[in-house]
Protein backbone atom coordinates (compact mmCIF):
# COMPACT_ATOMS: atom_id res chain seq x y z
CA UNK A 1 0.00 0.00 0.00
CA UNK A 2 2.71 2.41 0.99
CA UNK A 3 4.55 1.42 -2.15
CA UNK A 4 1.55 2.19 -4.33
CA UNK A 5 1.35 5.55 -2.63
CA UNK A 6 5.03 6.16 -3.05
CA UNK A 7 4.84 5.09 -6.68
CA UNK A 8 1.85 7.36 -7.28
CA UNK A 9 3.62 10.23 -5.60
CA UNK A 10 6.66 9.74 -7.76
CA UNK A 11 4.68 9.68 -10.98
CA UNK A 12 2.79 12.82 -9.97
CA UNK A 13 5.99 14.63 -9.11
CA UNK A 14 7.59 13.93 -12.42
CA UNK A 15 4.62 13.86 -14.78
CA UNK A 16 5.51 17.25 -16.27
CA UNK A 17 9.22 16.77 -16.28
CA UNK A 18 9.54 13.59 -18.37
CA UNK A 19 11.82 13.35 -21.36
CA UNK A 20 14.89 14.47 -19.45
CA UNK A 21 16.69 11.15 -19.65
CA UNK A 22 19.75 11.02 -21.87
CA UNK A 23 21.04 7.88 -23.56
CA UNK A 24 23.45 7.38 -20.64
CA UNK A 25 20.58 7.40 -18.13
CA UNK A 26 18.80 4.62 -19.99
CA UNK A 27 22.05 2.69 -20.18
CA UNK A 28 22.39 3.07 -16.39
CA UNK A 29 18.89 1.55 -16.01
CA UNK A 30 20.33 -1.66 -17.45
CA UNK A 31 22.67 -2.03 -14.41
CA UNK A 32 25.74 -2.45 -16.63
CA UNK A 33 27.94 -3.83 -13.82
CA UNK A 34 25.50 -6.63 -13.02
CA UNK A 35 25.09 -7.14 -16.76
CA UNK A 36 28.83 -7.67 -17.23
CA UNK A 37 28.77 -10.58 -14.75
CA UNK A 38 25.71 -12.03 -16.49
CA UNK A 39 27.42 -11.80 -19.90
CA UNK A 40 30.54 -13.47 -18.53
CA UNK A 41 28.78 -16.39 -16.80
CA UNK A 42 26.41 -16.91 -19.76
CA UNK A 43 29.44 -16.98 -22.09
CA UNK A 44 30.94 -19.77 -19.96
CA UNK A 45 27.66 -21.70 -20.25
CA UNK A 46 27.73 -21.29 -24.06
CA UNK A 47 31.39 -22.28 -24.43
CA UNK A 48 31.18 -25.32 -22.13
CA UNK A 49 28.02 -26.71 -23.74
CA UNK A 50 28.67 -29.73 -25.99
CA UNK A 51 28.02 -29.62 -29.72
CA UNK A 52 29.04 -26.04 -30.40
CA UNK A 53 27.07 -23.28 -32.04
CA UNK A 54 27.75 -20.89 -34.92
CA UNK A 55 29.59 -17.80 -33.58
CA UNK A 56 26.86 -15.47 -34.92
CA UNK A 57 24.20 -17.47 -33.05
CA UNK A 58 26.38 -17.55 -29.91
CA UNK A 59 26.78 -13.76 -30.07
CA UNK A 60 23.02 -13.40 -30.63
CA UNK A 61 22.25 -15.58 -27.60
CA UNK A 62 24.71 -13.60 -25.48
CA UNK A 63 23.21 -10.29 -26.64
CA UNK A 64 19.67 -11.46 -25.82
CA UNK A 65 20.68 -12.74 -22.37
CA UNK A 66 22.48 -9.45 -21.67
CA UNK A 67 19.51 -7.33 -22.81
CA UNK A 68 17.12 -9.55 -20.82
CA UNK A 69 19.26 -9.06 -17.71
CA UNK A 70 19.39 -5.30 -18.38
CA UNK A 71 15.61 -5.18 -18.79
CA UNK A 72 15.22 -6.92 -15.41
CA UNK A 73 17.48 -4.24 -13.93
CA UNK A 74 15.31 -1.47 -15.40
CA UNK A 75 12.12 -3.07 -14.07
CA UNK A 76 13.79 -3.55 -10.67
CA UNK A 77 14.70 0.16 -10.59
CA UNK A 78 11.15 1.09 -11.63
CA UNK A 79 9.65 -0.88 -8.75
CA UNK A 80 12.30 -0.02 -6.17
CA UNK A 81 12.46 3.75 -6.84
CA UNK A 82 10.97 4.49 -3.42
CA UNK A 83 13.64 2.59 -1.48
CA UNK A 84 16.43 3.60 -3.88
CA UNK A 85 15.66 7.20 -2.92
CA UNK A 86 16.43 6.41 0.74
CA UNK A 87 19.67 4.44 0.35
CA UNK A 88 22.97 6.30 -0.15
CA UNK A 89 24.23 3.60 -2.53
CA UNK A 90 21.26 4.00 -4.92
CA UNK A 91 20.20 7.62 -4.46
CA UNK A 92 21.81 8.73 -7.70
CA UNK A 93 20.11 6.17 -9.92
CA UNK A 94 18.20 7.73 -12.85
CA UNK A 95 14.69 7.48 -11.32
CA UNK A 96 15.36 8.72 -7.74
CA UNK A 97 17.57 11.47 -9.20
CA UNK A 98 14.61 12.59 -11.37
CA UNK A 99 16.28 12.12 -14.76
CA UNK A 100 13.92 9.32 -15.86
CA UNK A 101 10.31 8.91 -14.75
CA UNK A 102 8.93 5.63 -13.38
CA UNK A 103 6.67 5.25 -16.43
CA UNK A 104 9.58 5.71 -18.82
CA UNK A 105 11.64 3.08 -16.99
CA UNK A 106 8.70 0.66 -16.95
CA UNK A 107 8.10 1.06 -20.70
CA UNK A 108 11.83 0.69 -21.39
CA UNK A 109 12.12 -2.46 -19.24
CA UNK A 110 9.01 -4.13 -20.67
CA UNK A 111 10.01 -3.37 -24.28
CA UNK A 112 13.51 -4.76 -23.84
CA UNK A 113 12.21 -7.83 -21.95
CA UNK A 114 9.82 -8.62 -24.80
CA UNK A 115 12.41 -8.07 -27.52
CA UNK A 116 15.16 -10.09 -25.80
CA UNK A 117 12.89 -13.12 -25.34
CA UNK A 118 11.36 -12.84 -28.83
CA UNK A 119 14.69 -12.48 -30.63
CA UNK A 120 16.29 -15.34 -28.65
CA UNK A 121 13.32 -17.55 -29.51
CA UNK A 122 13.17 -16.64 -33.20
CA UNK A 123 16.91 -16.77 -33.88
CA UNK A 124 18.30 -19.34 -31.43
CA UNK A 125 15.73 -21.61 -29.77
CA UNK A 126 12.47 -21.31 -27.85
CA UNK A 127 13.61 -23.42 -24.88
CA UNK A 128 16.36 -20.91 -24.07
CA UNK A 129 13.89 -18.06 -24.71
CA UNK A 130 11.37 -19.53 -22.25
CA UNK A 131 14.17 -19.93 -19.70
CA UNK A 132 15.19 -16.27 -20.21
CA UNK A 133 11.56 -15.16 -19.78
CA UNK A 134 11.36 -17.17 -16.56
CA UNK A 135 14.62 -15.58 -15.32
CA UNK A 136 13.24 -12.08 -15.94
CA UNK A 137 9.96 -13.03 -14.23
CA UNK A 138 11.83 -14.53 -11.27
CA UNK A 139 14.02 -11.46 -10.75
CA UNK A 140 11.28 -8.86 -11.21
CA UNK A 141 8.21 -10.53 -9.70
CA UNK A 142 9.49 -13.20 -7.28
CA UNK A 143 12.56 -11.32 -6.00
CA UNK A 144 11.91 -7.59 -6.45
CA UNK A 145 8.15 -7.42 -5.89
CA UNK A 146 7.70 -10.22 -3.39
CA UNK A 147 10.75 -11.52 -1.50
CA UNK A 148 12.95 -8.43 -1.22
CA UNK A 149 10.61 -6.54 1.08
CA UNK A 150 9.11 -9.48 2.95
CA UNK A 151 11.78 -11.92 4.12
CA UNK A 152 15.45 -11.96 5.20
CA UNK A 153 15.81 -14.98 2.88
CA UNK A 154 15.26 -12.51 -0.02
CA UNK A 155 18.69 -12.80 -1.57
CA UNK A 156 19.00 -16.53 -0.84
CA UNK A 157 15.99 -17.41 -3.03
CA UNK A 158 16.33 -14.35 -5.26
CA UNK A 159 19.94 -15.36 -5.93
CA UNK A 160 18.56 -17.98 -8.30
CA UNK A 161 17.81 -15.20 -10.80
CA UNK A 162 21.51 -14.26 -10.92
CA UNK A 163 22.48 -17.93 -11.18
CA UNK A 164 20.35 -18.73 -14.24
CA UNK A 165 22.45 -17.02 -17.02
CA UNK A 166 24.97 -19.89 -17.52
CA UNK A 167 22.03 -22.31 -17.70
CA UNK A 168 20.32 -20.11 -20.33
CA UNK A 169 23.63 -19.97 -22.24
CA UNK A 170 23.91 -23.76 -22.14
CA UNK A 171 20.26 -24.10 -23.22
CA UNK A 172 20.91 -21.75 -26.17
CA UNK A 173 23.45 -24.26 -27.52
CA UNK A 174 21.88 -27.61 -26.64
CA UNK A 175 18.16 -26.78 -26.43
CA UNK A 176 18.12 -28.61 -23.10
CA UNK A 177 19.55 -28.59 -19.57
CA UNK A 178 21.81 -31.19 -17.97
CA UNK A 179 23.76 -31.62 -14.74
CA UNK A 180 26.79 -29.51 -15.75
CA UNK A 181 24.97 -26.14 -16.10
CA UNK A 182 23.10 -26.92 -12.89
CA UNK A 183 26.47 -27.15 -11.10
CA UNK A 184 27.35 -23.70 -12.49
CA UNK A 185 23.95 -22.55 -11.23
CA UNK A 186 24.67 -24.02 -7.80
CA UNK A 187 28.04 -22.24 -7.55
CA UNK A 188 26.47 -18.80 -8.14
CA UNK A 189 23.44 -19.68 -6.00
CA UNK A 190 25.55 -20.61 -2.95
CA UNK A 191 27.91 -17.69 -3.57
CA UNK A 192 25.16 -15.05 -3.49
CA UNK A 193 24.26 -15.11 0.26
CA UNK A 194 27.80 -14.63 1.65
CA UNK A 195 28.46 -12.02 -1.06
CA UNK A 196 25.37 -9.91 -0.32
CA UNK A 197 25.40 -10.40 3.44
CA UNK A 198 29.02 -9.17 3.55
CA UNK A 199 27.76 -6.03 1.74
CA UNK A 200 24.75 -5.81 4.06
CA UNK A 201 27.03 -5.98 7.13
CA UNK A 202 28.73 -2.71 6.21
CA UNK A 203 25.64 -1.13 4.60
CA UNK A 204 23.02 -2.32 7.11
CA UNK A 205 22.15 1.27 8.04
CA UNK A 206 21.03 1.84 4.45
CA UNK A 207 18.80 -1.24 4.38
CA UNK A 208 17.36 -0.45 7.81
CA UNK A 209 16.45 3.09 6.72
CA UNK A 210 14.76 1.69 3.60
CA UNK A 211 12.87 -0.97 5.59
CA UNK A 212 14.42 -3.80 3.57
CA UNK A 213 14.57 -6.92 5.79
CA UNK A 214 18.19 -7.86 5.05
CA UNK A 215 19.62 -10.53 7.33
CA UNK A 216 21.74 -8.21 9.58
CA UNK A 217 18.72 -5.95 10.08
CA UNK A 218 16.31 -8.77 11.00
CA UNK A 219 18.39 -11.56 12.58
CA UNK A 220 21.24 -9.40 13.83
CA UNK A 221 24.90 -9.23 12.85
CA UNK A 222 25.93 -12.21 14.97
CA UNK A 223 23.55 -14.61 13.23
CA UNK A 224 24.48 -13.15 9.82
CA UNK A 225 28.20 -13.79 10.44
CA UNK A 226 27.48 -17.40 11.38
CA UNK A 227 25.34 -17.90 8.27
CA UNK A 228 28.03 -16.34 6.06
CA UNK A 229 30.53 -18.86 7.43
CA UNK A 230 28.09 -21.76 6.99
CA UNK A 231 27.34 -20.84 3.34
CA UNK A 232 31.07 -20.39 2.65
CA UNK A 233 31.80 -23.89 4.01
CA UNK A 234 29.19 -25.31 1.63
CA UNK A 235 30.31 -23.12 -1.30
CA UNK A 236 34.00 -24.12 -1.17
CA UNK A 237 33.48 -27.83 -2.08
CA UNK A 238 30.74 -26.96 -4.61
CA UNK A 239 33.27 -24.72 -6.36
CA UNK A 240 35.45 -27.81 -6.96
CA UNK A 241 32.54 -29.91 -8.32
CA UNK A 242 33.20 -29.15 -12.05
CA UNK A 243 36.59 -30.88 -11.69
CA UNK A 244 35.21 -33.78 -9.62
CA UNK A 245 32.44 -34.30 -12.18
CA UNK A 246 34.97 -34.25 -15.00
CA UNK A 247 33.93 -31.22 -17.04
CA UNK A 248 36.89 -29.15 -15.83
CA UNK A 249 40.57 -30.06 -15.69
CA UNK A 250 43.16 -30.39 -12.93
CA UNK A 251 44.20 -26.73 -13.20
CA UNK A 252 40.63 -25.70 -12.42
CA UNK A 253 40.48 -28.22 -9.59
CA UNK A 254 43.60 -26.85 -7.91
CA UNK A 255 42.69 -23.18 -8.38
CA UNK A 256 39.08 -23.65 -7.21
CA UNK A 257 40.23 -25.57 -4.13
CA UNK A 258 42.73 -22.82 -3.21
CA UNK A 259 40.13 -20.09 -3.83
CA UNK A 260 37.60 -22.02 -1.74
CA UNK A 261 40.02 -22.22 1.19
CA UNK A 262 40.71 -18.48 0.86
CA UNK A 263 36.95 -17.78 0.78
CA UNK A 264 36.45 -19.73 4.02
CA UNK A 265 39.36 -17.88 5.66
CA UNK A 266 37.86 -14.49 4.71
CA UNK A 267 34.45 -15.67 5.99
CA UNK A 268 36.02 -16.93 9.23
CA UNK A 269 37.58 -13.49 9.79
CA UNK A 270 34.13 -11.92 9.34
CA UNK A 271 32.78 -14.41 11.88
CA UNK A 272 35.62 -13.88 14.39
CA UNK A 273 35.94 -10.06 14.23
CA UNK A 274 32.68 -8.65 15.51
CA UNK A 275 33.35 -5.13 16.64
CA UNK A 276 34.73 -1.85 15.42
CA UNK A 277 36.75 -1.00 12.36
CA UNK A 278 38.33 -4.48 12.11
CA UNK A 279 34.87 -6.06 11.75
CA UNK A 280 33.91 -3.60 8.99
CA UNK A 281 37.20 -4.16 7.18
CA UNK A 282 36.73 -7.94 7.34
CA UNK A 283 33.26 -7.61 5.75
CA UNK A 284 34.56 -5.26 3.02
CA UNK A 285 37.42 -7.69 2.29
CA UNK A 286 35.09 -10.69 2.02
CA UNK A 287 32.78 -8.70 -0.27
CA UNK A 288 35.66 -7.69 -2.57
CA UNK A 289 37.18 -11.17 -2.54
CA UNK A 290 33.82 -12.81 -3.31
CA UNK A 291 33.65 -10.90 -6.62
CA UNK A 292 37.20 -11.99 -7.48
CA UNK A 293 36.38 -15.58 -6.45
CA UNK A 294 33.43 -15.93 -8.82
CA UNK A 295 35.26 -14.18 -11.65
CA UNK A 296 38.34 -16.42 -11.31
CA UNK A 297 36.30 -19.65 -11.12
CA UNK A 298 34.45 -18.88 -14.35
CA UNK A 299 37.59 -17.44 -15.99
CA UNK A 300 39.41 -20.71 -15.21
CA UNK A 301 36.55 -22.79 -16.66
CA UNK A 302 36.56 -20.63 -19.80
CA UNK A 303 40.37 -20.42 -20.18
CA UNK A 304 40.92 -24.12 -19.62
CA UNK A 305 38.21 -25.10 -22.07
CA UNK A 306 39.45 -22.72 -24.78
CA UNK A 307 43.05 -23.89 -24.27
CA UNK A 308 42.08 -27.54 -24.64
CA UNK A 309 40.02 -26.70 -27.76
CA UNK A 310 43.02 -24.80 -29.19
CA UNK A 311 45.43 -27.68 -28.57
CA UNK A 312 43.15 -30.45 -29.81
CA UNK A 313 41.91 -28.45 -32.82
CA UNK A 314 38.38 -27.34 -33.71
CA UNK A 315 35.58 -29.59 -32.45
CA UNK A 316 33.74 -29.64 -35.76
Amino acid sequence: MSLADAQGQMIDDTAWSGGHGGVGDYFALLKPRVMSLVIFTALVGIVLAPGGIHPVLAATALLCIAIGAGASGALNMWYDADIDRVMSRTRNRPIPAGRVTGDEALAFGLTLSGFSVLVLGLLVNWFAAAFLAFTIFFYVVIYTMWLKRSTPQNIVIGGAAGAFPPVVGWAAVTGSVSLEPLVLFLIIFMWTPPHFWALALFKSGDYEAANVPMMPVVAGERSTRTQILAYSLVLAPIGVLPWIMGFAGLAYGLVSAALGVAFVIFAYRVWAMRKGDAARKAAVRLFSFSILYLFLLFAMLLGEHLLIALISGPAR
Binding site: G19, H20, G21, G22, V23, Y26
Partner: peptide, 15 residues
Protein backbone atom coordinates in the same frame (compact mmCIF):
# COMPACT_ATOMS: atom_id res chain seq x y z
CA UNK B 1 9.60 20.77 -24.43
CA UNK B 2 12.62 22.80 -23.42
CA UNK B 3 15.63 22.94 -25.73
CA UNK B 4 17.42 20.50 -23.39
CA UNK B 5 14.52 18.03 -23.57
CA UNK B 6 14.50 18.31 -27.38
CA UNK B 7 18.25 17.70 -27.52
CA UNK B 8 17.93 14.59 -25.32
CA UNK B 9 14.95 13.32 -27.31
CA UNK B 10 17.01 13.59 -30.47
CA UNK B 11 19.86 11.65 -28.83
CA UNK B 12 17.40 8.95 -27.71
CA UNK B 13 15.88 8.77 -31.18
CA UNK B 14 19.30 8.27 -32.74
CA UNK B 15 20.04 5.49 -30.23
Amino acid sequence: LTEEQKRRRRARNIA
